[in-house]
């Protein structure tokens, strides 16, 4: 017979062991992020200066130049993609949460999940087939369309999830005021939770901002500053990719800086979404 103390000690040991395992897995999850950021900081910080943001690439062989064209290109394409995907995504999410019972809803939910799982390179092919081939040219528009397919399912699902968390008595209270259902949904349920909905939207946008594959054979990339959505356009991820695989030291170092800028942008958007809007969300409760 073992004494109660022994049992207690064994239990304590098991408990500490479990804590240790959990701690190690947590570190395994966080470590890559820190390593990447630290690495990019070390490699990319040296090229991080005003020139990088105000210049476009110099001809091959000349040292210097920057990624202004790619930063602007990313902004243009991500904005266009958002313009397409956010309204549709919000409406789709509202539909799923507020009316989502029939066959159409089940189908939409299924399609959304599938779309989330489609590899982004395949989404690029979609843009290629749908826009590039018919118009016989790589274009920012094709890139934006592909990015919108990255954003769309995330916005639909996050919208649905957020709206579903809202207790029904708010909906009933809206109806009880003699409001038609659509007004109740738009002006009480949706309008009352805009900050939470924005969180989902910004996370989706930040995801799209960092995508390379959907742009490779849609927007293609460019070495010039362009505002023409019917022409090829540079983007940060593609520019980084092209520079990183180039044989030139200067371009490689700019690729590091570009990667640093990109991750700052994406992490920044994420933090912004989670803190600014997240805090409001907590206060509400």
């Amino acid at each position: 017979m073992r004494s109660p103390e022994t049992y207690f000690k064994i239990r304590k040991l098991k408990n500490s062991l479990f804590h240790l395992v959990v701690l190690i897995s947590a570190i395994c999850v966080m470590a890559p992020l820190f390593i990447v950021v630290a690495f990019l900081l070390q490699k990319g910080a040296s090229g991080f200066n005003l020139d990088f943001f105000t210049n476009i690439p110099k001809p091959v062989g000349e040292i210097g130049g920057g990624m202004k064209h790619a930063i602007i290109g990313t902004m243009i394409m991500v904005s266009l993609a958002s313009l397409i995907a956010i309204p549709i995504g919000l409406l789709g999410g509202i539909f799923l949460s507020e009316f989502g019972k029939g066959k159409i809803a089940t189908l939409l939910r299924f399609a959304t999940d599938l779309l989330t799982g489609v590899p982004s390179i395949v989404i690029g092919i979609f843009g290629y087939l749908l826009v590039v081939i018919p118009f016989k040219s790589f274009s920012a528009l094709a890139g934006a369309l592909s990015l919108s397919l990255i954003i769309l399912p995330i916005v639909i699902r996050s919208t649905e999830e957020i709206l579903k968390l809202i207790p029904n008595h708010y909906r009933e209270a809206g109806l009880a005021l003699g409001l038609p259902r659509w007004k109740m949904i738009l002006f009480i349920i949706v309008k009352g939770h805009l900050s939470q909905l924005f969180t989902g939207i910004i996370l989706a946008i930040s995801r799209a901002a960092g995508e390379t594959a959907p742009l490779l054979f849609t927007a293609f990339g460019s070495l010039y500053l362009s505002y023409n959505v019917k022409a090829p356009m540079a983007s940060l991820p593609v520019q980084i990719y092209n520079y990183a695989i180039s044989p030139y030291k200067d371009w490689q170092s700019q690729a590091w800086t570009g990667a640093f800028v990109l991750i700052t942008l994406v992490l920044g958007l994420n933090l912004f979404a989670r803190t600014v809007f997240g805090i409001k969300k907590l206060r509400r409760k």
Binding site: P167, H169, Y170, E172, A173, G174, A176, L177, G178, I188, K191, G192, H193, L194, S195, R284
Partner: peptide
């Protein structure tokens, strides 16, 4: 009209 059991002012208003 109806008043509910749980006070429920509309959020963000």
């Amino acid at each position: 009209g109806m008043v509910f059991q749980k006070p429920n002012p509309f959020p963000a208003m």
